[in-house]
Design a protein around this nucleic acid. Structure first.
Lengths: 222, 222
DNA sequence: TTAATAGTGTCTTTTAGACACTATGAC
DNA sequence: GTCATAGTGTCTAAAAGACACTATTAA
């Protein structure tokens, strides 16, 4: 097809969020090819029309192939484009973000953790993408059960409150939190299940899980 | 460059919103080329790397060239992609939405107006894009001065309230509306300026305009 | 003066935050 | 029992809605 050489380079990049010591953390990967080989960057790669059903599908494939991550909540963030963002030429990257619970992280490869609010310098416009993802998760976290996807399938209310605090970056009122969580009906008790006591946790707490209702707020989990 | 033929087709499409008889209205254009020549569709076209600085810049250029529209509030919505959305092949469209005040509409060409909630059947996945844009404007309209961008530079409070009602799709409480608008400090009085009385408007009202503060809420106006 | 819309004041309801209090289980 | 955390109840403050009321101006 004539004019084909005028098409932009099309890639996807994914911002990975997880919890580390109760802080919102991002996971970066060392680039193995130029440009910026050796630099820490978002996990990304080319969209492959012959095998990807969508850009989100491409992001999912790349997370699996390059980081061993699967089954994550993964959502489109925004598209970044321009002549100068990539030395290979006019490029377009459909940025995504994903939430990585600790269990999924066990199988992952080659990822390094950094505080989400204080990342190292990043190549391309990955710094701007990370900042946009952080802004998105903060906004969206305030009125959905999204932060709970950073936790295991079952969790206690104090744990849930701590994740909301980490995601939103502010302290929450205890009784107001329980009231709101209850009103939204996003979680339900796991019958007869209580958490183990640990060194930090003197008293076991009731275990909860997300209700089916909680998931309709999300686009999808891949 | 090898592998170039594997790059997706990259386009932009823009959902245009305006007010018509107090209702939120979308503006569509008859396509002059295949595929779907003659169908009403969103205003869109190819991204041209040699002249566009970004996809939003491409959307702005296409609005100017194909519809004679300039100076609009224009913002990225989301990116739609896949093998089947366009018969020409695997394609990706960066969807945008724009707000068209009546003054800008005067210079526009070849646009037809339809109720935003009840559009005609649209080709490609333009129906889904329009639905997403409507959802976005409703959400964002609730907590920003965005709806005011559908009005002229100066407007009365009753007019402003009517736009919010059209955008949000629900009736608002009068005194609560004034209180909120005042608290947000998004508008200011135009000194000694009052609207004209008309057939529907028995009594002139104070004219207001957006403050500079109101604009920081937005990404940009092109 | 009347009709119609502009604009205000105030009461009620709802929601969110503060914070003291009780409950439970490990030790 | 003691201590730390889980969980509840209640008071207060702030925000949102209902709605009656006053103000202004064209006719």
């Amino acid at each position: 097809m004539a004019g084909q050489e005028k098409r932009p380079i099309v890639t996807v990049d994914t911002v990975l969020f997880t919890l580390r010591d109760g802080r919102l953390t991002t996971l970066l990967q060392s680039r193995d090819k130029p440009p910026h080989a050796g630099s820490l960057a978002l996990v990304g790669g080319y969209v492959r029309p012959e095998e990807d059903a969508s850009t989100t599908d491409a992001a999912s494939r790349i997370l699996r192939q390059k980081a061993g991550l699967a089954g994550l909540f993964l959502e489109q963030l925004a598209t970044f484009s321009g002549p100068d963002r990539d030395p290979r030429g006019w490029s377009l990257s459909v940025a995504h973000y994903a939430l990585v619970p600790e269990a999924a992280l066990a199988a992952a490869q080659g990822l390094e953790a950094f505080p989400a609010e204080d990342p190292p310098p990043l190549p391309f416009d990955h710094g701007a993408i990370l900042a946009a993802a952080l802004a998105r998760i903060r906004t969206k976290g305030a009125w959905s059960s999204l932060p709970a996807l950073l936790l295991p399938d079952t969790f206690t209310l104090p744990e849930l409150k701590a994740v909301y605090e980490a995601v939103m970056g502010e302290r929450l009122n205890d009784s107001a939190f329980r009231r709101k969580i209850n009103d939204l009906r996003l979680i339900e008790e796991v019958p007869d299940a209580r958490s183990q006591a640990t060194a930090e946790r003197r008293r076991p707490a009731q275990l909860y899980r997300l209700t089916r209702r909680a998931f309709v707020a999300f686009d999808r989990v891949i």
